[in-house]
Design a protein around this nucleic acid. Structure first.
Length: 284
DNA sequence: ATGAGC
DNA sequence: TCATC
């Protein structure tokens, strides 16, 4: 018995689905037979972009407005990129990867995902999250699992999570779930407070340092001024901008974060993601 | 700390 | 040994 597919199209000026889903900000999407397939908001989704028209064909029971919000179609990407286009190097990244948009991720899923990301490369993170969802999420379609809610992870024991090969990260996930479940950390409140205060609240959790906090703040909490400095961004900035007076010959990670905010301005988070993607694909 | 790759 | 969104 065939069910009627929920198909519709999605469109925004200046949107590249491949760059957006491949750039390393999300871990639940895979390109399968030409369709980006993933689980979002408890639903399986399959997306394919027409290279000519730019229209995205969507096969998912979530409404169009969900994806318009998810892909931040409310961001005027042209003016944002214009604003962060400060020099020749940035201009090159922008021109190459034009259409890469930040994604508005679910706060809880984003928090746990980046907690798991510590000292792992993207393929490892994807594998671990997928295993965790298989063991603690709900099966929503054959072989596809939702991201586990806090209560499901609170009741996980260390050994079970070790079976997901989370290593030292397992205990941190359980503790974070408990903080959220107990109301010590109210994720919705993070939206209300400013960047610095939000960062402090996240860094209160074990396993969340400055870089992880910045990723979560940028990808889930609307803090565009977050400028996550990982190994890639660190190398790029040191190589390309290391001579700037600002660094005084000493470009630490924390200084790089502050520099990014100052140099690129309020949309530095976008600039950072273009750098990150370019560095991953092309090296330096 | 751990996995990929040499 | 190297790299780790």
């Amino acid at each position: 018995m065939n069910s009627i597919p929920d198909m519709y199209t999605l469109f925004s000026e200046n949107f590249n689905l491949d760059y957006t889903l491949d750039c390393g900000q999300v871990f639940r999407w895979d390109l399968i037979d030409g369709w980006w397939t993933g689980v979002v908001n408890g639903h399986v989704a399959r997306l394919q972009q027409d290279k000519g028209s730019g229209e995205v064909l969507v096969d998912c029971s979530l409404p169009k407005c969900f994806f318009e919000n998810y892909f931040r179609f409310d961001d005027d990407l042209d003016s944002i990129l214009q604003e962060v286009n400060k020099d020749k190097f940035m201009n090159e990244a922008i021109n190459k990867y034009m259409g890469l948009r930040l994604i508005r991720q679910d706060p809880w899923e984003c928090l746990i995902s980046y907690m798991l990301a510590t000292a792992w490369s993207i393929p490892n993170i994807k594998r671990a999250i997928s295993m965790m969802c298989r063991n603690y999420g709900d099966e929503i379609e054959d072989g596809y699992y939702s991201f586990p809610e806090p209560h499901a992870l609170v009741h996980a024991c260390d050994d079970d999570l070790r079976a997901c090969k989370l290593g030292f990260r397992g205990g941190r996930v359980i503790k974070a779930a408990r903080h959220v479940e107990d109301g010590n950390l109210v994720l919705d409140d993070i939206f209300q407070v400013d960047y610095e205060e939000a960062k402090q609240r996240l860094m209160f959790l074990e396993g969340i340092g400055e870089k992880v906090a910045d990723c979560i703040l940028l990808f889930a909490f609307e803090k565009m001024e977050a400028f996550p400095v990982d190994t890639h961004v660190e190398k790029v900035v040191k190589t390309v901008y290391g001579h700037h007076e600002y660094f005084n010959g000493n470009a630490t990670k924390s200084k790089i974060g502050n520099w990014g905010r100052m140099y690129f301005g309020r949309y530095c988070g976008y600039a950072q993601q273009y750098f990150f993607y370019q560095k991953r694909l092309e090296g330096i």
